[in-house]
Amino acid sequence: MEQEQYKNLEQQITPPTPYMKNALIAFFVGGIICTIGHAITYFYIIFFDFTEKTVGNPTVSTMIFLSMLLTGFGLYKKLGQFAGAGSAVPVTGFGNAVISAAIEHRTEGVVLGIGGNIFKLAGSVILFGVASAFFVALIKLILVTIGVVQW
C-alpha cells in the first residue's frame, strides 16, 4: 500500500476531532473558572485594601493556590482531559503546568529535578510573554519617538 493511500484510509477510520463540542466545553469551563476568579476579585476588594486596579495580583495568586491543590490531588488532570483549553488557558492551567512538573521531577532532586524542570512546560509561555513585551514596548517607543502615536 502506498503512503498516500494509507493516509486516506487512516483518515477515514480515525474519528474526527469534535471541534464544536471541544470549543463549547472550553467556553463553559473557562467561563466558570473566570467567574470563580471574579468572585475572588470581589472578595479581595470588599475585605482587603485592593482596588480594581491592584486586585489582579492577589486574585491570580489565589487561583494558582487552588490550582496547586487540584493538581496535587490529581483533579486538574481530569479537568484538563475534559475541558482542554478551558482549563489550560486560565492562569490555573499555567499553574498546573509549573506545579505538575515540579511534583513529577521531585525524585531527581531539589536542584536538578525541581529546579531544572519546573519550567519544562511553562517556560515557553514565559519566554514568549517577556520577549513579546519587549518588542511591543520597543515598537511603541519607536512609534512615539517618530510621532505616530502617543503613550
Partner: peptide, 17 residues
C-alpha cells in the same frame, strides 16, 4: 508518561486516538 508525554498531573486533553 513522564518520559514520553507530560508530567502525570498535567491536565492536557488527549484525543480519542
Amino acid at each position: 508518561e513522564k518520559q514520553f508525554r507530560y508530567p502525570n498531573y498535567y491536565g492536557a486533553k488527549k484525543p480519542a486516538t
